[in-house]
């Protein structure tokens, strides 16, 4: 069955504190932030929810500090993450890593396509992309 589009699912958020600013169309959650939408869960120290201009709909969630994102068997970690629900992408910045089973990719920036089993890993001028991929067969043996 086709997975529901994230933008059609509710977002549930828990945190220690919230500051909302109607004029800036932002809500800033701080302290043990957990945001869940469908099969994607974001963890971080701080999260800013941006609304689309002139609409109530969420444009994107930006998560800062000890960022961890879990989706089924994929886990991503980074210093900052931007989750765009309409585009259904998660962009990781700063010591970005994605783990899936034993496979692991790391870079300065990783774009994870949430509805596909695909990620795009970029490295800044600081170094090269690193990827450790285990052939499917070897993974099943171990």
């Amino acid at each position: 069955a086709e997975l529901p589009k994230p933008s059609s699912l509710p977002i549930e958020v828990t945190a220690n504190q919230l500051e909302a600013d109607q004029q800036k169309r932002q809500a800033i959650f701080t302290g043990d932030v957990v945001a869940k939408q469908g099969d994607v869960t974001l963890y971080g120290d701080k999260m800013v929810v941006y609304q689309l201009d002139g609409q109530e709909q969420v444009d994107r969630l930006e998560v800062f500090g000890h960022v961890r994102v879990v989706q089924l068997d994929r886990t991503a970690t980074a210093e900052r993450a931007v989750y765009r629900q309409v585009a259904e992408t998660l962009t990781l910045y700063g010591n970005a890593e994605v783990h899936q089973g034993q496979n692991r990719v790391a870079g300065d920036e990783i774009i994870v396509y949430l509805r596909e089993n695909r990620s795009l890993v970029k490295s800044g001028d600081s170094g090269r992309v690193k990827a450790i991929l285990f052939p499917q067969q070897k993974q099943e043996q171990q």
Binding site: P10, I11, E12, V13, T14, A15, N16, Q17, L18, E19, A20, D21, Q22, Q23, A27, F29, V49, V58
Partner: peptide, 12 residues
């Protein structure tokens, strides 16, 4: 502008 000080739960 609004500040909620603790125990935040939100459903969007």
């Amino acid at each position: 502008r609004m500040l909620l000080k603790k125990d935040i739960w939100m459903l969007l």
